[in-house]
């Protein structure tokens, strides 16, 4: 099985390093999602893999297994390999209709007229654009333009599909609708998918593998759940959702910090200096007038309450099923005994 690989990639722009020693593998039939804040180098990495930029160091290639069973990296022949790409801006051709957009990317691919027609019809229908066949980008809404950009990438039956924040400029129901359409489409496609996004929620819903990119470095890669539950560090954890780091001394299932009880319900086997990364859903709050933790704020979010508490000078968020009044005290405890 051939994989699209970036190996030890380095890239700078105006003497500012954008990517440093980045390695990545895209496997056919699987979706890899690059997550990172703005400016972390996601777009540059996609452009390098698409052959639009040349790495200053490192290489991109197709990884293959040779006769002796060893993996070797061969340079990508971009003229032969079929790469579909959706750009952050739709980059559509304003003078061409939706149909012509698909037709022009199929031209010169050695397909006969009827095959081209079949693919165009299929893709337009798949992306629910049949009614906009003769429409130019200026006559389409933002969501429809983005669907057309995705259709253009899919019509060539890509081996590799690169999606650069495909939903970045959409909001609300249009975004949700297009996300569902994208997920359905990717499930059917045989292509290896690499999608860049800064939306952790969408990333985790779509990804077979999540890659966290921070300041031009890959800080963690792995299945979405693993990366979420076992982050490599606080910054990596915060990319996928709110998280806080606590340190203290663990003993008898209790974590103590600065002489105050910080967390209870720990694994009894834990002992000595302990560092933990906690997400709100990992922490529960037990009301107790003698407790060490004080509720500073209580917010209702999507059917549950988020308590912003303070204990030993550290702010820790906890999920709770009921509203708790500000100033209430209690103890924080782990929902599960296995810390991150």
């Amino acid at each position: 099985m051939k994989c699209l690989v970036g190996q030890d990639l380095n890239f700078s722009y105006d003497h500012r390093p954008i990517l440093q020693e980045v390695s990545l593998r895209i496997t056919p039939g699987k979706a890899t999602v690059l997550v990172g804040p703005n400016g972390s180098g996601k777009t540059t990495l996609l452009w390098l893999l698409a052959g639009l930029l040349k790495p200053m160091d490192g290489r991109t290639g197709l990884s293959e297994t040779n006769k002796s069973g060893q993996a070797e990296l061969r340079a990508v022949d971009y003229r032969r390999v079929r790469i579909g790409m959706v750009f952050q801006q739709p980059t559509l051709w304003d003078h061409l209709t939706a149909e012509k957009h698909l037709e022009i990317v199929l031209s010169g691919k050695g397909l006969n007229r009827s095959e081209r027609r079949r693919r165009i019809d299929k893709t337009l229908s798949q992306m629910r654009l049949e009614g906009f066949r003769k429409s130019q980008p200026g006559q389409l809404s933002g969501g429809e333009r983005q669907r057309l950009a995705i259709a253009r990438a899919l019509v060539i039956d890509p081996q590799w599909l690169l999606l650069d924040e495909p939903l970045a400029h959409l909001d609300g129901s249009i975004r949700a609708e297009l996300f569902d359409l994208l997920r359905e489409t990717l499930a059917q496609a045989r292509a290896g998918v690499l999608m860049a996004t800064h939306n952790a929620f969408e990333a985790m819903r779509l990804a077979d593998e999540v890659v966290i990119l921070l300041d031009g470095h890959v800080v963690q890669a792995g299945p979405a759940e693993q990366v979420y539950r076992q982050p490599a560090g606080l910054v990596a954890a915060q990319v996928l959702g709110p998280a806080v780091e606590v340190c203290g001394d663990a003993r008898g299932g209790v974590l103590t910090c600065k002489g105050q009880q910080m967390l209870e319900n720990l694994d009894m086997s834990l002992a000595g200096a302990t560092r933990m990364i906690l997400r709100p859903e990992d922490v529960k709050f037990r009301v107790d007038p003698a407790g060490t933790s004080v509720v500073r704020r209580c917010e209702f979010v999507a059917g549950t309450y988020i308590l912003h508490t303070e204990v030993a000078g550290i702010e820790v968020d906890a999920m709770h099923s009921d509203r708790i009044s500000v100033g209430a005290t209690g103890f924080l405890g782990l929902v599960r005994s296995q810390p991150n």
Partner: peptide, 14 residues
């Protein structure tokens, strides 16, 4: 639109 032209390997003539 230049990156799109390049990534989809549209011929120079087209």
């Amino acid at each position: 639109c230049l990156p799109a032209e390049r990534v989809f390997r549209i011929s120079r003539f087209t």
